[in-house]
């Protein structure tokens, strides 16, 4: 498990992370979200022990990173931002080096090595020096390094940054497969990743916690949650009728593609009434959709709102 307790980092007058308290337990994939410069990487660096907190602390598997840093580091697998590695080493040398630094016994090490290399499909690159590898492969080497000691807690700073869609898919599958009995904290600014991976989300901005919820809960905060949208050429007449429905709060039409979005009043369900009304009007609807809510909109609302609050 990962726990931060009023974790704070100040650089002179700038507060990069401000009394951040988050918690993640085994089986959870916690997404750390925030705009660039929100303090995600600084927070992770403090949990990993690369930077010392100005105040507060963090615990990895119950080990305080200030009091028992080595035990905390042993329990943690960490992929730093940009997946740094020693370019002149081959993939095999690098992984063996990491295992030795982590004190893995050679019999355990051999088994883990084969498993990790298989999982990340690194067989073909084992004897190639890392600096000649593609970005995607390098990222996979970084991931291999993070999981080679089979850690109960995994922390990945933008694990899919710079990968193509296929590679992203592979990495997400890997994280998914490892999530069951581990605690995983990933930072990202990709909202699609939240849907694909996380079962809880923490949003930070200006170093402070802004939201801590499941992706579904966040979507519910969107004004699009429960809205119905459809494309129907020539639906101009029916808009007025739709507006008269007692459950409907408002209607918007996209000026570009003419897509109509109907917003419900709080707590109302409007898919069926809208559908039946359209049917009555005999309108040809090419496609109709019940919106779950838009994370990007919620993200903007939470992070932009807080910025004005932080710097009045």
């Amino acid at each position: 498990m990962i726990e931060t307790d009023k974790l704070t980092k100040r650089y002179g007058h700038l507060t990069a992370v401000d009394a951040l308290s988050i918690y993640a337990e085994p089986g959870q994939v916690l997404g750390l979200l925030g705009p660039n410069g929100a303090g995600k990487t600084t927070a992770m660096r403090m949990i990993a022990g690369f930077q010392a907190p100005t105040a507060g602390t963090a615990r990895v598997c119950g080990y305080d990173v200030r009091k028992e840093p080595l035990k905390a580091k042993r329990a943690l697998g960490y992929l730093p931002e940009g997946a740094p590695s020693y370019g002149e080493m081959t993939v095999r040398e690098f992984l063996v080096f990491i295992m030795r630094m982590r004190g893995l016994r050679s019999d355990v090490g051999r088994r883990r090595f084969d498993e990790v290399v298989g999982r990340l499909e690194l067989e073909g690159a084992l004897n190639v020096s890392i600096e000649t590898l593609s970005k995607g492969l390098r990222r996979r080497v970084g991931l291999a390094q993070a999981i080679v000691h089979d850690p109960p807690v995994l922390m990945l700073d933008e694990p899919t940054d710079g990968l193509d869609p296929n590679q992203k898919h592979t990495v997400r599958q890997l994280i998914d497969a490892m999530a069951r009995e581990r605690t995983i904290l990933i930072s990202t600014h990709l909202l699609e990743e939240v849907h694909a991976l996380c079962n809880r989300v923490v949003i930070i901005a200006g170093g402070r916690l802004r939201a801590d919820a499941t992706p579904a809960e966040l979507e519910e905060r969107s004004r699009y949650h429960g809205a119905v949208s459809f494309s129907a050429p020539g639906s101009g007449i029916s808009q007025e009728m739709l507006g008269r429905l007692p459950q409907v709060a408002g209607i918007e039409v996209d000026p570009l593609d003419g897509r109509v979005t109907v917003f419900p009043k709080p707590g109302e369900r409007i898919l069926e009434p809208v559908e039946s009304l359209l049917r009555q009007q005999g309108l040809e609807v090419s496609e109709i959709q019940l919106e779950r809510g838009r994370l990007d909109e919620v993200f903007r609302q939470i992070t932009l709102g807080s910025e004005t609050e932080a710097h009045p």
Binding site: R45, A48, G49, F50, L70, K71, K73, R74, L76, Y78, P80, E81, G82, P84, S85, Y86, I98, M101, R102, G103, Q145
Partner: peptide, 10 residues
Amino acid sequence: GTLELLQTLP
């Protein structure tokens, strides 16, 4: 950037 890697090893 490998300093971060090195200093987060146990």
